[in-house]
Design a protein around this nucleic acid. Structure first.
Length: 265
DNA sequence: AACTAGTACAACCGCACGCAT
DNA sequence: TATGCGTGCGGTTGTACTAGT
């Protein structure tokens, strides 16, 4: 039996997120937490599917994210973990507080793979490439290999634990998550910590090479212009927040599947 | 300056999983 | 047990950016 798609894509926005959308999503989650991703866009007034909101939050907006490049030590750790876990990026990411599976996966595909090849190692099996070549040319072994599970398949069989390390759905209640020497505090919705946190996020984000701007927002501006503009618009936005204007989960009747943010208002 | 190729990473897609009914 | 739903995960794609020519 076919499944209903996760969201009705008709009329939903796709592609890069705008600052305004980020504002809405952060604002909503910091105020209400997350109980049901599917309803988040509706309640937050976003024309996105819940899946897209979840991804945006987890990979980019989460307050405990650690931005910036990977250190040598981190890369070595990733390589070690990959040799044990295979492409289980979420499991690998669980060892790096503040890093996302997507970030690690991207880094692996763009940098570490090449690094390993340069080191003469096969990124898939972590064995020396010349040894790999011997194995391939050895027809007898080739036949044995066919009936033997790969290292990743082995992992598939041996590692089957429930993943409890993924992003908590009770965001508001989470506090001060320490990541190495850096502490990210999720601000209380009623104090000015939100402002400092947002600014901190912006500083962190500016260390990363790309921004969250959509082309229509910033195509006419230089990077320094956009950073300045983004920071200031964020401050203005934070100043203008009226908590009373935010729809709460309590206002949402889960039985009313057709509820729309704007309809309710 | 213009073009091209390579790189980095945000975002999307489809499937799997766990849970509730 | 079968089914539906929400979410998580991993693979892949799209595109902005950068370096080289």
């Amino acid at each position: 039996m076919g499944r209903r798609p996760c969201c009705d894509k008709v009329g939903l926005k796709r592609g890069p997120w705008t600052i305004d959308e980020d504002h809405k999503l952060i604002n909503f989650i910091l105020s209400n937490g997350i109980h049901c991703w599917r309803m988040v866009p509706k309640l937050a007034g976003l024309l996105r599917c819940g899946k897209s909101c979840r991804l945006r939050w987890i990979n980019y907006l989460r307050p405990d994210l650690k931005r910036g490049g990977f250190t040598e030590t981190e890369e070595d750790q990733i390589i070690q973990l990959h040799s044990r876990l295979g492409n289980r990026w979420s499991k690998i990411a669980a060892h790096f507080p503040g890093r996302t599976d997507n970030e690690i996966k991207n880094h692996w595909n763009t940098r570490i793979k090449k690094k390993m090849k340069l080191m003469g190692l096969d990124p898939l099996t972590h064995t020396p490439l010349d040894q790999m070549h011997k194995e391939v040319t050895d027809t007898n072994k080739k036949q044995r290999d066919r009936s033997r599970p790969s290292s990743e398949e082995n992992v598939e069989r041996t590692i089957k634990s429930p993943d409890s390390s993924v992003c908590s759905t009770q965001v508001v209640s989470s506090v001060s998550k320490e990541q190495g020497n850096k502490v990210c505090d999720l601000p209380n919705k009623n104090d000015s910590g939100l402002e400092s946190w947002m600014l901190n996020q912006e500083k962190n984000n500016s260390a990363a090479s790309s921004s969250s701007f959509s082309l229509e927002d910033s195509s006419h501006l230089s990077m320094s212009d956009t950073s300045y503009l983004q920071e200031n618009s964020l401050m203005e936005w934070v100043d203008s927040i009226s908590m009373e204007s935010i729809l709460q989960w309590d206002d949402f009747d889960p039985l009313d599947q057709d509820l729309l943010y704007f309809e309710k208002r």
